[in-house]
């Protein structure tokens, strides 16, 4: 077998594996390199047939009597309809105000002393219900969505996994975390920071949150306290209960790994 045939077989092995299981980071890298060598193949080469095989076996499986619980169906439909109505209202209000960006509209209103809470035109997420649906809707309705995985800054948090997604246009985002230890909310809380190096000298407070269970991943909305122009990174620290304006604590997690720098050479004074 010559080298090219060997590489092609390796590519097909990885494409086949990708269609039914999670590849390791090394396998993904290898697959990307091989796809460069064989551009006629795409990452989803086997996915349609794997999906159809799965559906075929499911339909003909007389042993599998499981189905989606009716209570879950009703919940998903209710959550979806609630979120759809909310998104429609926000879109309509945005058009009415005709602000080029929500960030500038918010800062203008702050300057004239208008209370944000008087207007429904706000993105502050205080409702922790339906978060998976809200996150999915943000993901698919945002053209400028950025997404990073969390990196631990100390060994103590190296088991943490998850990611952060954010939309500058929507001025909202969500973090997903697993493996973060529970905190005692009466003593301390985790705090999210948004790094926007070209607009803000120091990271912007993105809100505080608690980890109350470690059995499943937690989704937390990001609530920026100042308008964000272009978020380049995020961080998490552990602060006193209620959070702080400027952190003096060590970084726990960052996304991405290295701190983004200002295009204008401005040096931050805090984390």
């Amino acid at each position: 077998m010559d080298r090219t045939e060997e590489k092609l077989n390796k590519l097909l092995d990885l494409l086949s594996m990708r269609s039914y299981q999670l590849l390791t980071y090394t396998e993904e890298l290898e697959l990307n390199h091989l796809l460069d060598d064989f551009p006629e193949y795409t990452p989803d080469y086997f996915e349609p047939i794997a999906a159809l095989t799965d559906a075929t076996m499911y339909v003909h499986d007389d042993q599998d009597l499981s189905g989606m619980p009716e209570t879950l169906k009703r919940k998903i439909i209710n959550d979806f309809n609630t979120e759809k109505d909310g998104s429609t209202i926000t879109r309509i209000l945005k058009n009415i105000f005709q602000a080029p960006k929500l960030a500038w509209a918010m800062s203008f209103m702050l300057v004239i002393g208008t209370s944000i809470s008087m207007i429904e035109f706000r993105n502050y997420e205080s409702n922790y219900r339906n978060l998976p649906v809200k996150k999915a809707l943000l993901e698919f309705s945002s053209d400028d969505l950025i997404e990073y995985s969390w990196f631990a800054q100390t060994d103590e948090f190296c088991d943490c996994t998850g990611n952060v997604m954010w939309s500058d246009d929507g001025q909202r985002g969500f973090i997903t975390l697993a493996g973060l230890p529970m905190n005692d909310p009466s003593k301390n809380q985790y705090q999210i920071w948004i790094v926007d190096p070209n607009m803000h000298l120091n990271p912007v407070d993105g809100g505080v949150f608690d980890i109350t269970n470690i059995d499943s991943p937690t989704i937390i909305p990001i609530n920026p306290k100042l308008p964000i122009d272009k978020a380049k990174g995020f961080a998490i620290t552990l602060e006193q209960a209620g959070g702080v304006v400027v952190s003096q604590q060590p970084l726990i997690l960052t996304a991405p790994k290295e701190r983004p720098r200002s295009s204008y050479g401005i040096t931050p004074t805090t984390i």
């Binding site: 989606m68 879950l72 919940k75 998903i76 959550d79 979806f80 998976p132 649906v133 996150k135 999915a136 809707l137 993901e139 698919f140 309705s141 499943s216 989704i219």
Partner: peptide
Amino acid sequence: DGVQEVLVAIWK
């Protein structure tokens, strides 16, 4: 949670 996300993804 996963099923809910997937159904919304399919809708979109």
